[in-house]
Simulated scan of single mutants.
Amino acid sequence: MSPAEKRFQSGHVSSIAATHLLHDTYTSFFAPLLPLLSEKLGFTYALAGALSVVQRIPALFNPLFGIIADRILIRSGIILCPVVAVVSMSLIGLAPSIIMLAVLMLVSGITAAVYHVTAPVLMRRVSGDKVGRGMSFFMFGGELARTVGPLLVTAAVSWWGLEGIWRLIPVGLIASLLLFLNLRTIRKEDLLHFSTPAKEPLLKSFRGMTPLFSTILPIMFFRGFSKSALALFLPSYMVDHGHSLKTAAIALAVLELAAALGALGAGSLSDRIGRRKVLLGIMLISPALMYLFTLSGGIVLWLLLILMGLLFFASTPVFMAMIHDLNSDRPSLANGLFMTMNFAAGSAIAMLVGFAADHCGLLLTYKITALLGLFAIPPALCVKK
Rank of each mutant, 00 (worst) to 15 (best):
L151G: 06
L151K: 02
L151S: 01
L151Q: 08
L152G: 05
L152T: 10
V153L: 13
V153R: 08
V153N: 09
V153G: 12
T154F: 14
T154L: 11
T154I: 13
T154V: 08
A156N: 05
A156F: 05
A156Y: 03
V157Y: 06
V157H: 01
S158W: 05
S158C: 09
S158P: 07
W160R: 03
W160L: 04
G161P: 05
L162G: 01
E163V: 11
G164T: 03
I165T: 01
I165P: 02
I165K: 00
R167V: 13
R167Q: 09
L168V: 12
I169K: 02
I169R: 00
P170H: 02
P170G: 06
V171D: 01
V171K: 04
L173T: 14
I174Q: 02
A175H: 06
A175E: 07
A175W: 06
S176I: 11
S176D: 08
L178F: 11
L179N: 07
L179A: 10
L179G: 00
L179E: 07
F180W: 14
F180T: 01
F180D: 02
F180I: 05
L181Q: 12
L181A: 11
L181C: 11
N182L: 15
N182W: 15
N182V: 15
N182Y: 07
L183F: 05
L183D: 01
R184V: 11
R184P: 03
R184E: 11
I186R: 03
I186D: 07
I186T: 08
I186Q: 03
R187P: 08
R187A: 15
R187T: 12
K188V: 15
K188C: 09
E189S: 14
D190P: 07
D190C: 04
L191Y: 09
L192F: 08
H193T: 14
H193G: 02
F194G: 14
F194W: 08
S195A: 13
S195T: 11
T196N: 15
P197Y: 00
P197K: 10
P197R: 07
E200S: 12
E200I: 12
P201L: 11
P201V: 12
P201K: 08
L202N: 02
L202M: 12
L202H: 04
L203M: 14
L203S: 10
L203T: 13
K204I: 11
K204V: 14
K204G: 07
S205E: 14
F206I: 15
R207G: 13
R207E: 06
R207L: 10
R207K: 13
R207A: 12
G208W: 06
M209Q: 05
T210I: 15
P211G: 05
P211N: 09
L212Y: 10
L212M: 10
F213Y: 11
F213S: 06
S214I: 15
S214Y: 06
T215K: 03
I216G: 05
I216L: 09
I216E: 03
P218I: 09
I219V: 08
I219S: 01
I219A: 05
I219E: 00
M220L: 13
M220I: 14
M220E: 06
M220G: 04
